[in-house]
Nucleic acid binder design. Structure first.
Length: 572
RNA sequence: GGUCCUGUGGUGCAGUUUGGAGUGCACGCCGCCCUGUCAAGGCGGAGGUCGCGGGUUCAAAUCCCGUCAGGACCGCCA
């Protein structure tokens, strides 16, 4: 139907007879003698000149036969890649008419999210999404290349799997043959990739769809894609090198930015300095340790296990309203309150400094390197609360847009093996129960200690987004038993929940380790997008709905009956 | 489960703080004019349940309560 794409035409094509197909992007009609039509397809836009009246409207689909010619020099459009040439439209046929589109097909207009998703096929015509889809495809293929080159085999794993109690809420699929039983859609191919290692695949990878029924966010959809990796006879560092080279390759391919080396930071240091296990290291505002300083303070609110603060340069200009807002947020995040101190005219201006001794004031100034015009924000509480709240405040105050400051990849290593407790008061795995403890901390574990036990789990972080995580897996039965008993999982319960996996490990389990990279997030950041919806062809709204297809939707009673299901009225 | 922001012709916004006639801007749409435009231009015109429901008031887009939808975040996401 066509000989060229619109945006591919160049001055070398001058004189050629071409046939083009595309949409009417914009038209400039000059009465019944002359009209200019910007014809758009995936590759871009070319100006078609029509002699005579052109009864065309926006988004009409055309086939244009014509001749490429040089534009008169005074009419060259420098802002267009095809701006030096145009097509003399000799024969213009309308392949499909169009009603006026529900919103303009340009990148200037911010359109209501529901409207965009309801007419996603129109939205996808916009440059922004066209570019993002193409970029996404490039990311995928460069990752595949990188994995292939490193000796990995692409293996597909099932979508209908057994539900496991671990982790996120499952999406569930009722069985027709076995009423009352359900498949789950995979939260990740975790179990299967480990089984691949037991199966001697040696190096597995897959670009896998994962599904988790948890609340949506700018960086979270129900369904998302992972570059899923597992390898045998490797340690954590080997895996990190493999992943580093893959994501560096993708980054360079689509942005041209070379990533030389991805630095590592321990979880402990990340929390202490940035108040987050996924630190955004593109800006300062680091947390400053003040617990010792206020050890003997008279100020009741600071008599806490931990006191930290951040120094906001120029923050003394913050209005009372802004400070109240930050205080509200801090409380919403779990702090009892937020202490603020402005440095104005070399004086500390604050509602709380009257409770400080001279010594405390001076130490605070020097410890935080407080300068004229600064704002000091302090939180006192349990260590984890202090880190959490200040970490979020830091982002609230200083976080740059996602497309600024380059691509700051970062490995966060040495995560704690346990985090908090489950409903029975037993320690809970912070990654999953098959995560290998740090060799140096095995003795702690053997003595029944969980506090301070590190794991061989690691996260990859990019500009403050968690891009993925992985770990070295336990392949020794004695260590696995020790972990289960520490977690308060009785042998019969372990057998019931993970029996098939534990059985598999009895038949010669190679040491193995793995990782998974969130591709929607990686692609979004490489595209400079703050929201992964912009790099997903057909995403869902924050409430999990698809305005285009009306999913989710009720199903007929007969189908429910066939599945042995009955829908209860909503509970209050 | 919670906090915050948004909802006004087809689209994007202003108007809401301090209640007073559906007022305004840009784009689009319809008609007419226009032979080198490129976010074409000129003239004219049509188009509204101010998300929905209730309340306060002589009077509500504007104030209050509820609700729905979208967005951001906390919880949640091994």
């Amino acid at each position: 139907m066509r000989t060229h794409r619109c945006g591919d035409l160049r001055p070398e094509d001058i004189g050629k007879e071409v046939t083009l197909c595309g949409w009417v992007d914009r038209r400039r009609e000059h009465g019944e003698h002359l009209a200019f039509i910007d014809l758009r397809d995936r590759s871009g836009v070319i100006q078609v000149v029509v002699q005579g009246a052109a009864d065309l409207r926006a988004e009409y689909v055309l086939q244009v036969k014509g001749k490429v010619r040089e534009r008169p020099s005074e009419t060259i459009n420098e802002s267009l890649e095809t701006g030096g040439i145009e097509v003399e439209g000799l024969e213009v046929s309308v392949l499909a008419a169009s009603e006026p589109p529900p919103f303009p097909i340009d990148d200037r207009t911010e359109v209501d999210e529901v409207l965009r998703l309801r007419h996603r096929y129109v939205d996808l015509r916009r440059d922004r999404l066209q570019n993002n889809l193409q970029l996404r495809a490039q990311v995928n293929s460069s990752l595949r290349e990188a994995m292939k080159e490193q000796g990995f085999v692409e293996v597909e794993t099932p979508m209908l799997v057994a539900s496991t109690p671990e982790g996120a809420r499952d999406f569930v699929v009722p069985s027709r043959k076995e009423l009352g039983s359900f498949y789950a859609l995979p939260q990740s191919p975790q179990i299967f990739k480990q089984l691949c290692m037991l199966g001697g695949v040696d190096r597995y990878y897959q670009i896998a769809r994962c599904l988790r029924d948890e609340d949506l966010r700018a960086d979270r959809q129900y369904e998302f894609m992972q570059l899923d990796i597992e390898a045998s006879f490797v340690n954590g560092e080997d895996i990190r090198n493999i992943v580093s080279s893959a994501v560096s390759r993708a980054t360079e391919t689509v942005t041209g930015v070379k990533i030389d080396n991805i630095p590592s930071i321990s979880w402990q240091e990340a929390m202490e300095r940035f108040g987050s296990d996924k630190p955004d290291v593109r800006f300062g505002l680091e947390l400053i340790e003040l617990t010792e300083l206020f050890k003997n303070t008279e100020f009741r609110a600071f008599q806490a296990p931990c006191v930290k603060g951040i120094r906001v340069p120029g923050g003394a200009e913050y209005s009372r309203g802004r400070l109240d807002e930050l205080t509200d947020k801090s409380q919403n995040w779990g702090a009892k309150g937020l202490a603020w101190i402005k440095i104005e005219n070399s004086e500390m201006v604050s509602p709380i400094t009257k409770f400080f001794s001279e010594d405390e004031k001076n130490s605070l100034k020097s410890e935080m390197e407080a300068d004229e015009g600064d704002l000091l924000l302090l939180v006192a509480d349990e260590w984890s609360t202090v880190c959490h709240v200040l970490g979020l405040l830091r982002l609230e105050i200083g976080r740059p847009p996602i497309n600024e400051g380059g691509f700051n990849f970062l490995w966060v290593i040495d995560f704690p093996l346990f985090e908090g407790t489950d409903e029975n008061g037993n320690p809970a795995s912070s990654h999953h129960p098959f995560t290998m403890p740090h060799e140096e901390d095995l003795s702690l574990l053997e003595n029944g200690q969980t506090e301070g036990v590190r794991s061989l789990a690691y996260d990859l972080v990019l500009n403050g987004w968690e891009l993925g995580s992985g770990s070295v897996r336990i392949h020794r039965e004695d260590i696995q038993k020790l972990i289960f008993s520490t977690l308060g999982i009785e042998p019969d319960e372990a057998e019931r929940r993970f029996g098939f996996l534990l059985d598999a490990f009895k038949f010669g389990a190679p040491p193995h380790a793995g990782f998974a990279v969130g591709l929607d997030r990686l692609t979004a950041i490489l595209a400079g997008e703050e929201n992964i919806r912009e790099v997903i062809a057909f995403p869902k709204t924050q409430s999990g709905a698809d305005p285009l297809t009306s999913a989710p939707s009720p199903i007929e009673d007969v189908r429910l009956t066939e599945l042995g299901l009955k829908v209860l009225p909503p509970t209050e």
